[in-house]
Simulated scan of single mutants.
Amino acid sequence: MADAFVTGDVHHRACGICPSRRFPLGEFDVFERPTRECPFNPADGHRYTADGTPVCVHPAKVGLPAARYKSEGSPLKVAVCLPADASDVVPYLHDLLYGVAPVLLNDLIGQAQVEIRQAFPDLDPITTLRRALS
């Protein structure tokens, strides 16, 4: 069996019963919040869709955008949307990069470098990212 998405990290924000602690990325869905589409199963304490797909209902806690990764094969994507004011770039990137799942970091850092160069030519992308990550 493949390793769970969240492994061995007792300080991770994912709930103790989250499917991210039992299944690898892509083997569970992430919903924005609890809904009737993924009712709570009192027999085992988990949520499932009608087809039996395990569901996490706290995207911010697992650092993944809400999507139907298992049930619909949704691709894993997060986009960098820089703020309009250059002074807000470092705080925005800090929150984005520290709140996202580690599996998404490389892609987001690459996106951020491109976006910073395009939106703010006077900012050095490497310096800006270092400040955001420190």
Rank of each mutant, 00 (worst) to 15 (best):
residue 1 M to C: 13
residue 1 M to Q: 11
residue 3 D to C: 01
residue 4 A to R: 09
residue 6 V to K: 02
residue 7 T to R: 15
residue 8 G to E: 15
residue 9 D to K: 13
residue 9 D to F: 01
residue 9 D to E: 14
residue 10 V to P: 01
residue 16 G to Q: 12
residue 19 P to E: 05
residue 19 P to S: 01
residue 19 P to F: 02
residue 20 S to E: 02
residue 21 R to Y: 13
residue 23 F to E: 01
residue 23 F to C: 06
residue 24 P to D: 01
residue 24 P to M: 01
residue 24 P to S: 09
residue 25 L to Y: 02
residue 25 L to Q: 06
residue 27 E to S: 11
residue 27 E to D: 12
residue 28 F to K: 04
residue 29 D to Y: 05
residue 29 D to A: 05
residue 29 D to G: 09
residue 30 V to I: 13
residue 30 V to P: 09
residue 30 V to Q: 05
residue 31 F to M: 08
residue 31 F to P: 03
residue 32 E to R: 10
residue 32 E to I: 02
residue 32 E to C: 05
residue 33 R to V: 06
residue 34 P to A: 14
residue 36 R to G: 14
residue 37 E to Y: 06
residue 39 P to G: 10
residue 40 F to C: 04
residue 42 P to A: 04
residue 43 A to E: 15
residue 44 D to W: 07
residue 46 H to E: 14
residue 46 H to V: 03
residue 47 R to P: 09
residue 47 R to M: 09
residue 49 T to C: 14
residue 51 D to C: 05
residue 52 G to E: 14
residue 53 T to F: 05
residue 53 T to A: 07
residue 54 P to F: 01
residue 54 P to K: 00
residue 55 V to W: 07
residue 56 C to N: 12
residue 56 C to W: 02
residue 56 C to T: 04
residue 57 V to M: 00
residue 57 V to K: 00
residue 58 H to G: 00
residue 58 H to D: 08
residue 59 P to A: 03
residue 60 A to I: 04
residue 61 K to M: 11
residue 62 V to C: 14
residue 62 V to A: 13
residue 63 G to L: 03
residue 64 L to I: 09
residue 65 P to S: 11
residue 66 A to Q: 04
residue 68 R to I: 02
residue 69 Y to S: 04
residue 71 S to N: 08
residue 76 L to S: 12
residue 76 L to W: 12
residue 76 L to H: 06
residue 77 K to N: 08
residue 81 C to Y: 07
residue 82 L to C: 11
residue 86 A to F: 09
residue 90 V to D: 01
residue 92 Y to P: 03
residue 95 D to Y: 10
residue 96 L to R: 04
residue 97 L to R: 10
residue 99 G to P: 10
residue 99 G to Y: 08
residue 101 A to G: 09
residue 101 A to P: 03
residue 101 A to L: 02
residue 102 P to V: 03
residue 104 L to N: 12
residue 107 D to S: 14
residue 109 I to P: 00
residue 111 Q to E: 11
residue 112 A to Q: 11
residue 115 E to D: 15
residue 116 I to A: 11
residue 118 Q to D: 12
residue 118 Q to P: 00
residue 123 L to P: 06
residue 123 L to E: 04
residue 124 D to T: 02
residue 125 P to G: 09
residue 125 P to I: 13
residue 128 T to A: 00
residue 132 A to E: 12
residue 132 A to C: 05
residue 134 S to A: 11
residue 134 S to L: 08
